[in-house]
């Protein structure tokens, strides 16, 4: 793979929000939603962020374009770091990136027609309105019938609203599309349509994609690289094939194992993960996954693991990565 400069890259990005009562003189404590997250997306690359609810994947997407204000780390656009996290800096990012919301219908003004809103990004960018034909072509690119352009958002189905959101994103061809749960709430056939649309856009414009999803099958189908997040931290990241062939982190392994297998004869011996996701208010000590990990040791409870690199940009945050001598020992003992 030729390494082009990433369209966007986050280095050690941290997002924390004040939490607790806001009375005078009462200390408020910070709630860390993202800790030390480093993800880069290159042109034409599709990167999936996979994680359970509360893993911070949506926050990451929003922090990249400044809808959530990062409290630490760095964001770089085309290899140039943003000087600060001010509105002006994020304006530059927003010019290059489009965000597709998890609920596309709610991301349209309920009082405007779809057609007007699809043309809006161009108007904002100062490129003027769109002629009717151009608008219809754009809608057709996103697989949206031109009869839908005169409708109000509430009169669209889930899949149509999704396509309308894509069409709006495409009106000013963005170099990065951040798609938050792009397949949520869609029929499987429509899901496939949306994902193929993404691949098509990528092939045509060399657009980079950041897919935020909890659906491993979706991530596997389209993405070049996968990032596994847990409690606001990246636990494992690497090329899709590598992650699926040889997951290094016990959590990734558990996620893969928990994917349903269409085979009635295959029964699972035990649940792959123990218990529930811990609360962000009460982060576990040491490795944050240790309470739910099958191979956790004393060391995991005390010492937070550092990021360990493997070949091919595959990194793992675990003391006992699977398929390594340490991991095999731990597996045997656990």
């Amino acid at each position: 793979m030729t390494l082009k400069n990433p369209v966007i890259s986050a280095d050690h990005l941290t997002v924390s929000v004040p939490e607790g009562p806001h009375y005078f003189f009462q200390p408020t404590y910070k709630l860390d939603i993202l800790i030390d997250v480093s993800i880069a997306v290159r042109p034409g690359e599709i990167v999936s962020i996979v994680g359970e609810s509360g893993s911070g994947k949506t926050t990451f997407g929003r922090a990249l374009i400044g809808l959530m204000r990062p409290s630490g780390g760095q964001i770089s656009l085309d290899g140039v770091a943003l000087p600060d996290f001010s509105k002006g800096s994020f304006r530059k990012v927003r010019r290059e990136a489009a965000l597709l919301f998890q609920d596309p219908a709610s991301s349209f003004n309920p009082r405007q027609r779809i057609g007007a809103m699809i043309a809006e990004p161009r108007r904002i960018a100062g490129q003027g309105g769109m002629r009717r034909n151009d608008l219809q072509d754009l809608a057709a690119t996103a697989g949206l019938g031109s009869s839908l352009l005169s409708r109000f958002p509430h009169a669209l189905s889930g899949g149509q609203a999704r396509r309308a959101a894509v069409a709006r994103a495409l009106s000013v061809v963005p170099r990065l599309i951040i798609a938050d749960e792009p397949t949520a709430g869609l029929d499987v056939s429509v899901q496939g349509g949306v994902l193929n649309l993404f691949l098509d856009i990528r092939d045509r414009h060399d657009t980079a994609f950041l897919l935020i999803t909890h659906n491993l099958a979706v991530a596997r189908h389209v993405s070049d690289r996968i990032v596994i997040m847990y409690l606001g931290r990246v636990l494992e990241s690497g090329p899709t094939a590598e992650i699926f062939r040889a997951p290094r982190h016990p959590y990734t392994r558990a996620l893969l194992d928990s994917e349903p297998v269409p085979d009635p004869k295959r029964r699972r011996a035990e649940p792959p993960v123990i218990g529930e996701v811990p609360s962000l208010m009460n982060r576990p000590s040491g490795c944050e996954f240790h309470q739910r990990c099958r191979i956790a040791r004393d060391r995991c409870r005390i010492e937070a693991p550092a990021e360990t690199p493997f070949a091919d940009g595959h990194t793992v945050r675990c003391h006992f990565p699977l398929d390594t001598p340490a991991g095999v020992c731990a597996m045997a003992a656990g």
Binding site: I65, R91, R94, F101, S107, N109, P110, I124, A125
Partner: peptide, 9 residues
């Protein structure tokens, strides 16, 4: 939809 507008600059 207001967040979307902000995200669109």
């Amino acid at each position: 939809f207001i967040k979307a507008e902000q995200a669109m600059n």
